[in-house]
Design a binder for these strands. Structure first.
Lengths: 203, 203, 203, 203
DNA sequence: TATGAATGAGTCTTCATTCAT
DNA sequence: AATGAATGAAGACTCATTCAT
């Protein structure tokens, strides 16, 4: 049915990000095509995984573009990036888990370009006096990506409601876990008391 | 040579946390024994992976014990947990990447116990007014573990100096990335200007 | 384009006599048609190969007819046969290499008829005192066909000039490699000093 | 059982020279080992076929050595070569049928060395006045090898008795099919009236 | 006990073949 | 009628696992 390469890749992510060792059988079934067709579209398992990785990187690059991370106030830019990244968090989770991907030079290069953009955003923020300077921009980049990936896994496994994701990510990453005595707490989105494994233990 | 089960498990983590699909061949080589001996020590691949997972959980449980997370001020408890967790961050990375592990009931049970302890810590912190209440304790637990795992990967790949790890983790997680206009910034550890050199724990 | 069955068969011989395991893809490409069309012309690989074999056998039978091997002096008949066979030597090479062909009863029968005609020619020659009796007619038949096939391969690979083929084959097979001290050496054809240029049959 | 590489290769020749498309299954069974072991000994089908080809070339080279083709009278040298080649005629048949082999540079080089030795033998014979000069040494080399291969096929298929092979080959190749009016006919070996598809039609 | 050699099981891959256009 | 796309069937290949030493 779905013979579109990108459609197949999307299906592949869904399977592979859960179980990186999934059989091609399973991926083909998830995509609604036969193993043989899968092989015609992507010549071999490695090629498939490589292309899933490339898709993830393209999406993350697109998120950086959409968020216009190079523009304006660093905090606002990061908030835009959070919003733009969360829909593809699952792909980022895949990128985080598949370390072997980075043995391909082209993937590694593309990866480093995006990380450099993140890095530059944090550097700019530090120079603007927005981000803390005692945490290195490299670590901030790394940790941000880890958290995006974590959001992907949590959503996929049903431990985090998609509509809470952006808020949770942005607030934790930007503001940390500690309560700030002197400032008003930002209100969580209106729906956050919703159905999805809600935290019922507020004091 | 190294026929000690735990020695082999340590070697296995080193390999498996990077590449969850690594062959037994590779693991055996990393442990300095033959495939056949590996097989005698652990009856089958699944058993080996299961034991690696159990080791990781035991270590994480031990970190929770060492940090006495159930005791005292939540922030201080979390800082103790960070210090206790970072040395085994690589094992946490393994636990984070190997979703299939949790299909074993005993592992899943043990996991849920530890996560519950984390969850309780954050709840207590929220009740103490220490942790923000607009971020659910579940999300805080999840994100904390993601960041510990991220620290493990970063250290393993040489992108984060081990001696910076605890500070980076605690500060980011507790304080967030934003600079607080009204409060003093905690000083990073004295050595934090040196990069990427594994340190030999000064007394 | 070339949807003529025999045209396709000719193309198939060119490919298959070199590489009996060639894919249908390659054969179709050589014939200038698509795999699917090849399939419509010949229902399946076996059918195609079978028809190539039949074509080869028909051509060899035609050579035996043209040479009128049943008529007259055995040596002269054999020389006529050489002349008649060489143009289709490549098909004979195919017949020699494709042992599985003879599992088809009809092909095997046709083959045995032709071999019997060869055999009869050598027997007659032995009875006429023309051919040596210490070499069995069966071996002579076999060896003759082997050499025709060899000529086919040599021509195809450019190691034998087509215009030298008949002379080389006839002289070697009939007269052997040894120089006869007492008899005049037959003059090779006038052009035989020029090498490997396919000739355009002079009238 | 037979885990010796050369033993396996011998078994492979027996199967492959009959049916070049034989499954690895069949070859493994013929060698008395499992497919997996066959794969351990030879990494992949191509490698196996390549090594069979190399074995054939080594044997043919050994035959040239044994026969000391570079020494003495050319006719005697060729007769020695016939005797030395016939036991490995099947391997030569394999070499003749597997044209793809010569795409490997090392095999092609080795092949050309042996053919050059044959070529030199015929040239020397022509200079000695032993071999006919109107047949090119290149064609004589080619045809000789074709006939050795033909002998291999004939023996394998039971159409030629092994003990008749050397005589039949040497006499046909050296003396040709025509009876020489002026010379005594060499007596075939005593057993040539034997059981193996004897020619019962001598006048 | 530790190992190299052998293998069974199961995945990957590639064809020949069919189908929809 | 001819083709690109899709697939079933079957072989190639690679593991984890076992065995004999």
């Amino acid at each position: 049915m779905a013979t579109d390469r990108d459609t197949v890749l999307e299906a592949a992510v869904g399977v592979l990000s859960r179980r990186p060792t999934a059989h091609l059988d399973e991926i083909a079934r998830a995509a609604g095509i036969s193993r043989a067709t899968l092989h015609r579209l992507f010549p071999g398992r490695d090629a498939l995984i490589r292309e899933v990785g490339l898709l993830g990187l393209r999406r993350f690059a697109a998120a950086l573009d959409t968020a216009e991370v190079e523009r304006g106030d660093a905090e606002a830019a990061l908030r835009r990036l959070v919003d733009a990244s969360v829909p593809d968090a699952m792909l980022c989770a895949f990128l985080a888990g598949e370390n072997q991907l980075y043995e391909h030079d082209d993937i590694n290069d593309l990866w480093e370009v995006q990380i450099a953009r993140l890095h530059a955003l944090f550097l700019r923020g530090q120079q603007q006096g927005v981000f803390r300077i005692e945490l290195s921009a490299a670590w901030l980049s790394e940790a941000f990506f880890d958290l995006v990936a974590g959001v992907g896994w949590s959503i996929q496994d049903g431990r985090l409601a998609p509509r809470d994701a952006a808020f949770s990510l942005a607030e934790l990453f930007l503001g940390g876990a500690l309560r700030r005595a002197d400032t008003h707490t930002p209100a969580p989105p209106a729906h956050s008391t919703s159905d999805h494994r809600p935290d019922t233990d507020k004091p």
